[in-house]
Design a protein around this nucleic acid. Sequence first.
DNA 1: GGATCCCCTTGATATTTGTCAAGATTCTTT
DNA 2: AAAGAATCTTGACAAATATCAAGGGGATCC
Lengths: 195, 195
Amino acid sequence: MVEVFKKYLAEKMTLTDEDWAVIGSVCIIKKLRKHQFLLQEGDVWRYHAFICKGCLRRYSIDAKGIEHVIQFSIENWWAGDRDSLMNKTPSKYNIDAIEDSVVLVIRNEDFETLCRQIPAFNNLVNQILFRSLNASQERINSTISLTAEEKYLHFINTFPALANRVPRHMIASYLGITPETLSRIKSNLSKQKRE
Amino acid sequence: MVEVFKKYLAEKMTLTDEDWAVIGSVCIIKKLRKHQFLLQEGDVWRYHAFICKGCLRRYSIDAKGIEHVIQFSIENWWAGDRDSLMNKTPSKYNIDAIEDSVVLVIRNEDFETLCRQIPAFNNLVNQILFRSLNASQERINSTISLTAEEKYLHFINTFPALANRVPRHMIASYLGITPETLSRIKSNLSKQKRE
DNA sequence: GGATCCCCTTGATATTTGTCAAGATTCTTT
DNA sequence: AAAGAATCTTGACAAATATCAAGGGGATCC
């Protein structure tokens, strides 16, 4: 499973055998069964996690006990709680597996050493940061500008791989609407298509 | 006005006179009158802009011609369009001044040189990136989890300095609600307070 | 110092979305 | 294969929010 990560790195940076020896040595493979937590609210997150296989979600639980999905991540993406990591504060989020998954975990100290020792790795990390930030902005834009139906269409456009992979009620939660509303949107859309 | 930036840097990193000589030499001061654009949709953004004084907003315009405020920035914050900068693509956003403002602009080439030459500066930039990302996540969370009234309360809690500084209809737009709804929320809140 | 424009408020009404409840369907586990 | 749990759908109704329209107040510009 480490191979997935190696391939990912090789595609995004020039990766010498030497680099890989250093990086590989700090990687920890962790299997997660469906529903198993990678991070629970209240814990401090001290890692960087790369998903080799499977699908995770990050979500918060509000005062009324309702779950709100903040993010999905699948193979070749990262997961974690930067806020908790950076400020060493208990996390406000939960991360769990939607399917049986395999994640590759790197301890933060090790990760920082990698960034210092391997400039290309550091650049990659920065690139990912930039991308995440742009994606966030994009999401904010669509959340405040679009109707429920438009948000759903935007979602399946942006993440076609997820539409048939994660339960609908989680997509609804991600979009900030109720499962019932999503269900109606879908039935409307397929009605319109038939006409 | 460059002093504001110097003070900002001195607070966030160890800034030698030498560093400042290098940094100061690439700073361009730009005055913006109220309503004046810093960036217009379609232009490519090639700078980093620090606000010395005043208040800017970034917004998009949707297919129906409606403006959606994505972000406010005031003195001691940065403004710009990372997406356009990074990908060298025409910007999807407008940035304009809500009040007469003074911004400090650094060309991207110069900025990158600074990052390479002054490690402390580079660290600061990374820190800011992290913070922005956390703030984005936080905003997404509140946008999908809260009611209109809660969003408004959350906003004035998070940005008390903005509440009395930017027009209400822009706050409404930022929150993804109509000005009318915001107006009613405010009148409800003050009613409740009186009771 | 009007005149104009922009912004905010309020009311009436329409639309969207949420809530609650029941039944159907699918997935899991044994 | 059957039981049980979770998920999805649908309907009736309620609540939240948007839309449309009108009027008032304050800033700004000749």
